[in-house]
Amino acid sequence: MLELRLVQGSLLKKVLDAMRELVNDANFDCSATGFSLQAMDSSHVALVALLLRSEGFEHYRCDRNLSMGMNLNNMSKMLRCAGNDDIITIKADDGTDSVTFMFESPNQDKIADFEMKLMDIDSEHLGIPDAEYQAIVRMPSSEFARICKDLSSIGDTVVISVTKEGVKFSTAGDIGTANIVCRQNKTVDKPEEATIIEMQEPVSLTFALRYLNSFTKATPLSDTVTISLSSELPVVVEYKIAEMGYIRYYLAPKIEE
């Protein structure tokens, strides 16, 4: 028996919007820790890891570990039927091949349930080793989204370089080149507007902009984004989900042949 009640139902809609461009089908894993997911895109270049901790739910009952295979577009179709202020409850019985999403309006005058068929998904669960990152950049998520969008109109790949001067995003394409440098800036009115660079040593890595643009679909989940870089390692782009957990994206770098 599984019953997860999330008062802030719109959060689940945002989580789905943040993943469905990258991943079609995925297993949602439910345990005492929380509601989580790990999935790769079809070309195995990017990986998304989601955690919504059990403490973040108003009610969390998960009698035994359960893995539920879902098509994210179908799940999104169902969640779009929930009002933005609705409370969403996810329910499943042991041994059944469906999951129920229950939507309650804030004043309880409308209650809907949508039952979705589950699917069998063969997915590999990768072990992500702990890493020391050479540079960690925290910046406003809207700023990062803007940079990825702007650069992708010029080129297909971005070089992200962190030095003492700041973090530089560079691209090149048929029509020309572009460089955007963001300097550390802690003197802002609100902490979420700061750009903070923790650098152990300079690092420079190349990534496909297409994937980074997909990651920025998570922008509505968090005011800030953290980008962790180390040479020879996938970049980690993390959006913290307030009170609940995180959505992390890992992207394999483009490397010299």
Binding site: H44, V45, L126, G127, P234, L251, A252, P253, K254
Partner: peptide, 14 residues
Amino acid sequence: VRKQSQITAFFSNP
């Protein structure tokens, strides 16, 4: 020329 690497090259498959 840079080649796109795969995530599976970095993370282990237990």
